[in-house]
Amino acid sequence: MSTVTSEVLAIRTGDDVVRVRQGVRTAASKAGLSLVDQTKIITAASELARNTLDYGGGGTARIELVQEPMRRGVRIIFEDQGPGIPDVEQALSDGFTTGRGLGLGLGGSKRLCNEFRIETEAGKGTRVTIARWR
């Protein structure tokens, strides 16, 4: 038996990024992640929510609390209908940025998660799925 409880949050403003962080914190704590693992997944979610806002022109974050027989944890899916990422490989390398950030968002976030997947299409948008397991 697997249970997935989820909530979808809109990402339209900087305040929404803070709300995503709070939602992930709640789910990560319920999933029983250690303090360090909670901090890692909240930080990764904060980076990606900001990417959704700054590069995707806004979108949504779906926060899932996953309770399966073999694993418990948090999964977050960020979706936008923005321009997409032309070169994912390049976007994942440290130091790469097209915006005003430090260029650590994608590559850095990947290191903080157990699972990390990007689906993107030019002109259609981007979906980033991350997870951290107990």
Binding site: T39, K40, T43, L102, L104, G108, L112
Partner: peptide
């Protein structure tokens, strides 16, 4: 710990 792993 998280900052170092993030690369910041």
């Amino acid at each position: 710990i998280t900052l170092v792993e993030l690369g910041l």
